[in-house]
Every structure is written in structure tokens, then in C-alpha cells.
Write a protein that binds this DNA or RNA. Structure first.
Lengths: 415, 415
DNA sequence: ACATCTTTTTTCGAGCACTAAAATTATTGC
DNA sequence: GCAATAATTTTAGTGCTCGAAAAAAGATGT
């Protein structure tokens, strides 16, 4: 049964979720504003808000509003998330470092630690132990969060197994095959969720610009890997339940360049930093990919291409061609209204754009519907972090807190 | 606002829809069975059913159940759709013929007409006029349906424009650019919906096998064109709101074989009947595609390939390779649990399978998750018709009838 | 033929969440 | 202080679901 029965319980859950979602997306609001935002009546907003206040999920803000913003009537009292209502721990695991952030329910960064990662890290310390130690340390340092920590979310690269407990494959050594999410869940007693970085890009982008909130967006990360997050009408889409794509490992050329994943001809093998590097220095396509490309080296590739050096412009042309045909193939299946390029590769968008557009213009859908708009966004880290944070806090809102039972109303005090 | 507020009205709509959907998917049922199927309480099923009966949407069946099927207690009274509650008119427009079927609310075929179509048909008669005449004729012959006709749905090939009122491109001459859906809606006074044939394949397949109802299925039609319908967890997905893909026109080889759509290297240009024909007889890839390939000619291609003729097996190898890489690229974005090949090309699946699997095995996702199961289904016409019918009847259920207002309950007759 | 058993269906009363409209509250402006 | 204005809360009423119990409709047994 895909749909389940609707009753007054599901109504309450839905409308509480609506209210929490409106606060999450728009920040602290007055009850009247929330009524307008959600479509609920003022009476219902009041009733629901009384429960949320009683459950200490939200609190009334006493803000000395600037004098000129004051109107005539009774001033509105803004309601916002109660910071201490919940905490979430967010791991961002990258090829060379891992970062753990403790976030409160209002989305404020409470504490953060960062550690170096090397290919040997997870061979020496099993991943669930490594993460468990960081988490314990973080909890020990923040007594407040101890009882209120609700979720652990991990951003990771690779292919998740179907139940989301671990990775089937990862560019990071020592992670594949370890069910570290479920291990960590067991040792910490908390729900632990695993998120592909590409998917978080899509999620993070949605929160950047309100226009993108309900739009269909394909967000392509170009950097040390190539990844894509996809949202359709505000719904995250993709492979598996968690919604993530393997755009970077979509085949571009059969039997083509060697990819870090071991296959041949993946888009990533042409468009990720190591692919461009390899092509720029005329290293054979079948040579093993460089393990990591420092940021400044990638930057110098861009600069030499911008200076007009043929080998370098050629390398970016190949990258653009791979991305362009990948997008054209994706567009045969979906029709996003926005295509965003993020990550270090966004710096090179202008170098790649001619080949991207050439590839797109050879497809029927672009001939019919016209060229989609492709824009670059320069910041890499924040979309992922923001996506991880907003996704996790939204999960707390909708899964944990929207489902809380109502406070029984005592029909006028018994005399 | 993506989500809208939930109230008792939406609860009723939802649960009525649940009940109608259970009847649609499982046929006539007893109230008790419906309670189990939907999760509603017996009391609610009774209450909702009283409304549905009063509104003449369903009726109790008096069926002389076979003696051995009888149990001990009070026998169940089955409830089924009232046939005359609604009618829908379904057009299936193909390259060489158009078929109009009149279906009653229980899904029984009431009347059907079929007419030849030639490339000149829609040049001589504008499509909305052509369809309008057929429809008027059909209504005139079936007096019963006159007042109860609720929807007109049209199955078509090509690319729909964004609002679904017409086609931006079509392999059928004279249809592109004509807003015939809205014209017909205006002249008939009925809602007219346009559906890509590829999308109906996905819809029709879902109703064939209950297992597929909530599964993720990619249905690939191979024949005079190549098309794909995609459903994810029972939700139809794809380009645009109506959910349809352009899989056939996904690029396979940059600058490759000339496709009927005018572009180069589309999957269809290799895998549709004309593509195989062209390759089998070593006609240059850039030669104009044959306008139509008779069924027996395609069949003879298969037979000569099965007999081992090199040119012919090679042609099917190219077709399989195009489909295989197309699927591998699709799988980078989505992860259907079933892949079905339907249409005339299903006959040739065994000829194409080795190349399909070779292409798939060169992709990371297949290496990790294993090869998806690919099965052939021989019947072409019925999935499309079934999909069109079930989709349209479900629309009537969920859009028209689930939203009907409740019958006011008179609190015990006034004394 | 009649009482008993079994299963389906309906009835009844309670609970809950929503809404509209009225009442209340907090400020500003004069 | 009093009117005007705008935000919030209270009140009364409606519609939906559910659980429990009652009613209905045959089948079975003596």
C-alpha cells in the first residue's frame, strides 16, 4: 500500500510539519505571518503553536524591533525555533579531511572539529570507531547537547548500499563494505543517516534561493569528482530511496579514459580535476588517475587555459564535451528548469561552456525546447554543509517533532 | 507553497480516493476486504460507501457465488464500480491508424472505431477537427454516454509542449504546433489530456502485474520508434509534468547515425526498426531513414539474424549496443528494479541481449549493484491501451469523484 | 423447525482538528 | 484618556475517523 489512511492524527502531523517547515524556510515569524505562509487559519496557528511552545520546540522572541518598522496596531510577537530543543551532529567526510559540526535546532553552529584524513586512516581505525571517537569527544565538550542530540548525519562520496547503512564503493579507502552507519547508530543509540555529497548539493541549493525551493534543479559538482543532485518540483530524485545520482560515472565514451572508479569512459574521467590534468599534460587516457589534485594546481590549469595554451584549452574542451553530452543524456530523461555548476570547476565554466553548448545543441530536446540556462556557483563547501544541515534539521522537524502527540486540552478546570 | 493545509475535507478526499483506488486495482470487493486493503476501519468503509452508493458511483453486486467458495457466516456483498457512472473516450493515434474507444466507468469497452491515417490526413483535416468528428460520431452512436462522458484522453508520439495542449514535435505529419488538445477541449466542453505513448507504457505495465504497482520500472518500447516510460516507487517520472522521457532520442554516439528526428546519433537511429534495416543492408548511416517498416519486413530481419547472417546479426548488435549504453546512462541517474522491453523489438531481445549486457557491464553501477534483470514482453498494443484507460479512469476516480462533497447526514429525523 | 454459530455490516458515542466569528490584548495617535 | 488598528485567543460548530457493540444474514446441528 503506497498511500495510507488519513485521519485526524495525520492532519495534525501534516499541519504541524507545515508550520515547522515555514519556520525552517523563512526564519522566525509572527503567528499572523505563519497563517498567511501556510494557509492555516489564525485559530489553528494559535492552537498548534501552543503545543509547540509547551513542548519547548519554539519560543517567543523578544526583539526590540526598530522603531520605524513599527505599525499601528498590536505588535506581532515573532516565534522561532528554541535552540536547545534539539542538536544534530554532522560529519562531512572528504578525501583529505573530516569535519564534525554540532548544530542546534535553530541551525546555529555550536561546535566544530576538523581532522586530517589519509588513505591509511580508515585502515588503522575502523570508520565507525573513528567517527564514534570524534562524536564522543564532541558530546563530552558540549554537556548541553548530551540529552538533546537527535541525529547524526554523514556526508560521503561513493555508492551507498540499498539500505543506507554503508557504502558499496567509495573513492575513500577503507570505507566500502563497512556498515559504519548502523554500527555508529548502535554504539551511539542515535539514528545515523548517510548522504551522498551529490544529493546534498541538490538539497543545499534548494535552500540558497527561495525560487529554487519548488523548482526542478540539476546541480552538478565539478572538482575532484563529478556529481549531480537532482530535484524535481522540490522533490529530491535519483537512484535509490535517498535520491542520489551517479552522474560522474555515467558513461561518456565507451572504452574511453580510465576513471578513478576503475571503469572506462566515465564523465568524471574527463571532467574531474584529475581528468583535466591528465589531458592537459598529454598523459595517456589509460594512465592511472592522480590520487589528489591540489587546489592551486587545478587553478593553474585554469589560468594556463585562460592564457590560451592549446593543450590546456583542449583539456577543458574535453571536460566540457563530457559534461555536455552527459547533460544532454540526462535531459532526455528529465527537464530541470535550472542547471547549476558548483565546486572548483565552476571557475572553469567559461572554458567549458562552448563544448557544453555544442553537445547540448546536438540533442533533440534542446532543439525543441531551447537551450537550458546553465549557471555557475563558486562556493563549494557551503552548499554541501548547508544541504546536510537543512536536510537533517528538516528530518528532525518532520519526522520527530511533527509526529509528537497533541497536548490534551482540559475542558475548563473542573469546579 | 508545495504542500497545502490538511483539513477534514482533504481527509475525506484522500480516503475516498483510497477506496476508489483499491476497487480500481483489485476489482469488486466486499466492504470487509476493502477495510483490509485500505487500512480504514469497517465503520469508515461503510460510511464512505454509503456516500458512493448514494452518488451512484458504485453498486452492490448480486453474484451467485460458487457453492464451495461459501464460508460459514454472513456472506459478503461485493461492491463494484457502477458502469454508467462515467464514460471516457480514448484516442490512440499511431503512424498509420487512429483508434477511438469508448470505455465505461468499470473499464468495459463500450464502442470502438478505427480509421486509417496517412501523412496527408492531418494536412487535409486539422487534427482537432478530425478528432472532433470521430468523437461526435461516437457520442451520437451511444446515447447513454452523452451526459456522462467525463474525459477525452489521447495517446500520441512526439514531444509535448509544456502545458500539454499540443505537440512541439511529432513523427506524425501535421500534428506539431497545432494546439489540438485545447481546441478539442473547447469544442467538446470536456477535459482533454495528451499522453506520450512512452509514458503510457509505464502506466500500462504497472497495471499488468500487481508486483509492479509500487515498484520502479523502466519500460522500453522498441519498434518503429524507441521510447521509455519510467515509474519510481509507483510514481510516474520523467520530463515535464506528465512524466515522459525522450529515451529514443538520447544521444548514443556523437555525430552518429541520422535519426528520423533530424539529429545525429540518437538511440532510435540504431535500435528502431528503420535503424536496424539500414544497418542490415549496409545503407550509409547518414541516409534518410525509411519512412515506415512493415511488420513482416522487420520480422524477416530477425529471422535472417537468427539464421546467423552476419550483416543482420551485426545490425542487431548495433541496436543492442545503443540500447545497452542508453540503459547504462539511465541507470547512472535512476535505479529501477525492473527493466521491461516491449513492442516488436521484444522479439529480437535475444539477438540484442549480449551487446546490451556488454554495455551495462562496463558501467560502475552494474559492477556494484549487479546486472539488472531485463525481460521482454511481446504484446505492444495492449500496454498502451491499458495504460491510457487505467490512467484516465484513475484520473476520474481521484480528481472528479474523490473530491465530490459528502452527503450531509441528517441527525435522526426530526420528530 | 429452531437455536446456535460465524462472519459481515451498521450504528452509536467519543475524540480531534479545523474554521469562522467574536472577544481580547497591546500599541499608536490625538 | 479614548479611539483606531492590528495581532492573538476564545468560543461554538462541523466533519471526519475510530472502537465497541449491536444488528443482520446465512450456515450448521439437533
Amino acid at each position: 500500500m503506497a498511500r495510507s489512511v488519513s485521519d485526524s492524527d495525520s492532519v495534525r502531523r501534516h499541519n504541524r510539519g507545515l508550520l515547522l517547515g515555514a519556520l525552517r524556510a523563512n526564519g522566525p515569524q509572527s503567528r499572523t505571518a505563519l497563517a498567511g505562509l501556510t494557509g492555516l487559519s489564525h485559530a489553528s496557528v494559535t492552537a498548534i503553536m501552543q503545543d509547540l511552545l509547551a513542548q519547548n520546540l519554539v519560543e517567543e522572541l523578544v526583539e526590540p524591533r526598530s522603531d520605524d518598522a513599527r505599525g499601528r496596531g498590536r505588535p506581532a510577537t515573532l516565534v522561532g525555533f528554541a535552540r536547545q530543543a534539539a542538536y544534530v551532529a554532522l560529519f562531512e567526510i572528504d578525501v583529505n579531511k573530516a569535519r564534525l559540526s554540532l548544530i542546534d535546532y535553530a541551525g546555529v553552529l555550536v561546535d566544530r572539529t576538523e581532522s586530517e584524513i589519509s588513505p591509511s586512516t580508515f585502515r588503522e581505525t575502523p570508520p565507525h570507531q573513528f567517527l564514534g571517537q570524534k562524536l564522543d569527544h564532541m558530546i563530552a565538550r558540549n554537556a548541553k547537547a548530551k540529552g538533546a542530540l537527535r541525529r547524526v548525519a554523514i556526508s560521503i562520496q561513493g555508492i551507498l548500499d540499498r539500505d543506507g547503512s554503508g557504502l558499496q564503493w567509495s573513492p575513500l579507502t577503507g570505507l566500502a563494505g563497512m556498515p559504519f552507519a548502523s554500527d555508529l547508530a548502535e554504539s551511539s543509540g542515535l539514528p545515523v543517516t548517510l548522504h551522498k555529497r551529490g544529493r546534498l548539493l541538490a538539497e543545499g541549493t534548494r535552500w540558497l534561493d527561495p525560487d529554487l525551493q519548488d523548482a526542478s534543479v540539476a546541480t552538478v559538482f565539478v572538482g575532484s569528482t563529478v556529481a549531480m543532485g537532482l530535484s524535481l518540483h522540490g522533490q529530491i530524485m535519483g537512484r535509490g530511496d535517498d535520491g542520489a545520482t551517479e552522474f560522474g560515472h555515467m558513461n561518456h565514451t565507451p572504452g574511453g579514459a580510465l576513471c578513478r572508479c576503475g571503469m572506462r569512459g566515465c564523465i568524471e574521467a574527463y571532467a574531474a580535476d584529475y581528468g583535466v590534468l591528465r589531458a592537459a599534460y598529454s598523459v595517456p587516457e589509460t594512465a592511472a588517475p592522480a590520487p589528489a589534485v591540489p587546489a592551486q594546481q587545478y587553478e593553474s590549469l585554469i589560468q594556463r587555459a585562460e592564457a590560451g595554451d592549446r593543450n590546456f584549452t583542449h583539456a577543458f574542451n574535453l571536460a566540457g564535451r563530457a559534461i555536455g553530452y552527459g547533460l544532454s543524456r540526462m535531459l532526455a530523461m528529465f527537464d530541470p528548469s535550472h542547471i547549476l555548476i558548483v565546486g572548483p570547476g565552476a571557475r572553469a565554466l567559461n572554458l567549458m561552456r562552448p563544448e557544453i553548448e555544442a553537445a547540448l545543441s546536438s540533442s533533440l530536446v534542446c532543439k525543441i525546447n531551447g537551450m537550458p540556462s546553465i549557471t555557475g556557483h563558486m562556493d563549494e563547501k557551503e552548499p554541501v554543509f548547508r544541504g546536510l544541515m537543512m536536510k537533517t534539521l528538516s528530518d528532525v522537524d518532520q519526522t520527530d517533532f511533527a509526529a509528537l502527540p497533541a497536548i490534551p486540552t482540559q475542558k475548563r478546570a473542573a469546579g
